[in-house]
């Protein structure tokens, strides 16, 4: 369970998050939506202990990320890009992560296989496409077989086959009782993947509920999203 409670973040004189609260529950895929600069990535970074909250809390099973013992086996995270140095090979990147988490080398080969990167594992990360980088980030997130996945724009740059794979994969993870929180701006993909939706706009939550609740009377999630996040919805019709 991920619990975001009254989270506030100030950066310089700007308020990035204005006391947001929501939950991502086990057994469900929660989609975190919002325009660029709405505060999605800031929320995820605070959740993962990368940025500090001005006030409020972001908890993973009731604990801040920094208090988790061997966090890779509890939370798998994939944020911007691959999160790897461009001069290192994909396999070497996963190997140091596995070593830090005390995982066997064989697990590296398993996640390379799962994410379809086995043939590219010996290449430098700098030569990877955006989609391959995303797959490497996903492989790193899966190394510890965690019960919680936190993914920032996971389908960005993936080809149709990759998008289909990730959709199926995340559904399977959630159906096994795991928690999945993902941010995205691809409404069509999200509507086919998520159970719950949280929409953020200018640092404030403007919708939080099941997919059906958030869509409401709108024909699609996309329509609902624009109605909730645009000052003048008619502009986008």
């Amino acid at each position: 369970m991920i619990t975001i409670n009254s989270l506030v973040k100030h950066r310089r004189k700007q308020e990035i998050l204005s006391g947001i609260s929501f939950k991502a529950r086990p057994g469900r895929v929660t989609g975190f939506l919002g325009p660029n600069g709405a505060g999605k990535s800031s929320t995820l970074r605070i959740l993962l202990g990368l940025d500090r909250a001005t006030s409020g809390s972001a908890l993973i099973n009731g604990k801040p990320f920094a208090e988790l013992d061997n966090p890779l086996t509890r939370v798998g995270a994939a944020l911007d890009g691959a999160g790897a140095h461009r001069m290192r090979t994909g396999r070497a990147h996963l190997c140091w992560i596995a070593r830090a988490a005390g995982l066997p080398r064989a697990r590296v080969e398993e996640v390379l296989e799962i994410t379809g990167l086995t043939n590219a594992a010996g290449k430098r990360v700098g030569s990877y496409s955006l989609g391959m980088g995303k797959r490497l980030g996903m492989a790193a997130a899966l190394l510890g077989d965690p019960e919680i996945l936190v993914l920032d724009e996971p389908v960005n740059g993936l080809d149709p086959e990759g998008i289909r794979w990730i959709r199926t994969f995340l559904r399977t993870r959630a159906e096994s009782g795991n928690t999945v929180l993902l941010s995205s701006h691809l409404m069509g993909e999200l509507a086919e993947t998520v159970d719950d939706v949280v929409i953020i706009k200018q640092g404030q939550i403007v919708a939080d509920g099941t997919l059906a609740e958030v869509i409401g009377k709108h024909p699609t999630l996309e329509e609902a999203y624009f109605a909730l996040t645009t000052e003048y919805p008619g502009e986008n019709v």
């Binding site: 970074r45 993962l48 202990g49 990368l50 990320f65 920094a66 208090e67 988790l68 966090p71 890779l72 939370v75 995270a77 944020l79 911007d80 999160g83 790897a84 990147h93 992560i97 830090a100 988490a101 790193a140």
Partner: peptide, 8 residues
């Protein structure tokens, strides 16, 4: 970002 999500 990877480093600090592995060693918290």
């Amino acid at each position: 970002a990877s480093s600090l999500t592995v060693v918290s």
